[in-house]
């Protein structure tokens, strides 16, 4: 199974396996990571904000207007900010490194 590397809010790094049928948010949530995702994944809030390691940002599908607009509601938005509910975890993303953004 493909893997992804997560840095949580305390700075702890860990590796988890993922199923490419799920989004990044669903994978984080179902693995017990502290990610609120209050809208449930329909891009209607900004509580699943993550940073994507710069090496991987170009390999993701571009952000659409809706996601970019919702990021207006997030804190500490950076160039590599994304909403994890909008990231489909394909097999090609094996090894992707992400960091959970501050609350």
């Amino acid at each position: 199974m493909p893997k992804l590397i997560i840095t949580d809010r305390s700075g702890k790094k860990s590796e988890i396996e993922y199923d490419s049928n799920f989004t990044l948010m669903e994978t984080l949530r179902d693995n017990g990571y502290d990610i609120e995702a209050s809208c449930g994944g329909c891009c209607a809030c900004a509580t699943c904000h993550v940073y994507i390691d710069e090496k991987w940002t170009n390999r993701l599908k571009d952000m659409d207007d809706e996601e970019e607009s919702m990021l207006d509601q997030a804190f500490d938005v950076k160039n590599n900010s994304r909403l994890s509910c909008q990231i489909e975890l394909s097999e090609e993303l094996d090894g992707i490194e992400i960091e959970i953004a501050p609350e």
């Binding site: 207007d65 970019e68 607009s69 990021l71 207006d72 938005v77």
Partner: peptide
């Protein structure tokens, strides 16, 4: 003040 030049 806004983080980008586009507005929703």
């Amino acid at each position: 003040i806004h983080r980008r030049k586009e507005f929703r």
